[in-house]
Design a protein around this nucleic acid. Sequence first.
RNA 1: GCUGCUGUAGCUCAGUAGGUAGAGCACACCCUUGGUAAGGGUGAGGUCGAUGGUUCAAAUCCAUUCAGCAGCACCA
Length: 643
Amino acid sequence: MPKIALPDGSERHYDGPVTAGQIAADIGPGLEKAALSAVVNGNHWDINRIIDEDSEIRLITKKDDYCLELIRHDCAHILAEAVLELYPETQVTIGPAIENGFYYDFYRENPFSSDDLVSIEKRMHEIVDRDEQIIRGEWSREEAVRFYKDRNEPFKIELVEAIPESETVSYYQQGEFIDLCRGPHMLSTKKVGHAFKLMKVAGAYWRGDSNNPMLQRIYGTAFLKEADLETYLTMLEEAEKRDHRKLGKALNLFHLQEEAAGSIFWHPNGWTLYREIESYIRRRLNSENYQEVKTPQMIDKSLWEESGHWEKFGENMFTANTKDDKILALKPMNCPGHVQIYRQGVKSYRDLPLRMAEFGSCHRNEPSGALHGIMRVRAFTQDDAHIFCTEEQINSESVAFCNLLKDIYADFGFSDIRVKFSDRPEVRAGDDKTWDKAEQALTSATKAAGIETSSNPGEGAFYGPKLEFVLTDAIGRDWQCGTLQVDFILPERLGAEYVDENGKRKRPVMLHRAILGSLERWIGILIEQYSGKMPPWLSPVQVVIAPITESSNDYANLVYRDLKNVGIRVHIDLRNEKIGFKIREHSNAKVPFILAAGGREEESRTVALRQLGSKNQEVMSLSEVNSFLQLECMPPDLAKNTK
RNA sequence: GCUGCUGUAGCUCAGUAGGUAGAGCACACCCUUGGUAAGGGUGAGGUCGAUGGUUCAAAUCCAUUCAGCAGCACCA
């Protein structure tokens, strides 16, 4: 005799087993119609699944976010059904709902073409219109295995065998199609509606392991309403326009070419941006009492063996052989080099914390498929630093670092940061006791800094746990930028030490930390964040002065020299073009300020200022415009100081 | 690295029955000196990612290779 508790605190009593659907109907016909699935004692259940014991239930309707998951998961099944109808030789594997849609992985000899997608999608719409009932059933393990043996579906057999003994094996049937599935699903294929679209095909490894066979994954997306689908597709188009690879070319910031895959050719515009960021960071680190150093690009293999890099990451390191049979390696990281500087001379506890910074140019031989614009490259520069400190100082140094990082991110316009806590990986150096200590230290530092983290198990560096500060690019890809890593291991391996208050030699702790991560990646993210429309302090060209006609060239030149003299990045456009044309070009180039100067301005010793994104002009005197632009173009840290 | 797709003038792209390449923009020159998102004319520019093959003949077919794109795997 089930007693049903509802979210509003009320209870309903039934004489026999009921379904969530019946309960909804009892509450009201509106709800009966709207209910799609239910949460029964915390588990997602079908609306028509029998409830025969006391339960807490909550009904899922279109108002719940979860309904998108339902639709997408149903969609994945419909996709699989369509594929099997059209290409019966295909084997099905798994097909979940994901963040922006769903996918289904298939195994077959010949991959799907984009034409295939069109016919599959068409068939899916037909299946929805067929209004097939989706029916849940249960199997014993043997039945399930036999079913898939008969159909020659080894992947599914593997899945069945992976289900823990404690769980029942359920399947869902719609029409002729039967799929092993935990559920829940809606009542019929019709419920899915038609607001879905197949997006792309791509390879994906069985169970995400590159040693396994490659499957054909079809991605799709689905929404409640057609309008939502349209909105999503438009959003994707808009995001593509901000792609840093497109904008980088359009704004003449950099280029890449195949003879130097994974390395960037910085053009004058891009390099100006790069240097502006570098100077900014240098100022910030300097005022936080970091000392900047520069360490060798190539170091003998023996040092990398000592540090552990050769063993753990040798595959990704570029090497150069010398005539006398030495092997030099291009540095993939700066830490061993910094320890070498630290080790020059005896260090006292009075020297700690010692903060050593470097704009470290690193090379890593990334797999070809990993390269992505300037976000993932083989040659990049880290705003790297290592803080050598005592165990007691870990906390205060971490807090100071997190605060600095937040402040710097804010200066670049980022307030929404996600932080992941990555703990010990399988392949690691050092014993478990050391790792316990390091992870505890980092956890407590995180708390002290008031930072919320999500856990990222097993993803730490080989020498220590880390915080990863993650930003998302225009196309929704996540990129790790900043990082903070607690390392008890490298100081040991590379013999860093200090003399404590009692004259004893001790190991310092190393905090590896970066804020932007890689300057290259940071610039890529900035371009996308601002759609190329950089704030004035970062704009490669801050001001363009455009005379109306040739007769104003001399006057324009005077204005130009005035601005140039106070350090503003100003260009002058003396081309034989109309003012409208010049405005258009410099606006497209996203120059923040355009100054027009013609006879009127010359007469009154003024200029007409036009800001990017505004149609209005503002007439200002030369001294006004000079101080206005100086202020507007000032980096945020310096601007704070002048206030 | 794996699977699929793509690779044509500086840029964006067209070139579907294999017969030695086109457009727009940009560029150069000339005309125009014009007030806030494209004034007009003329002209120069590619041997079609690379290599090899099939063919009387290849940008167009085949093979290999490089790079890019999407996803997967990887990301110290």
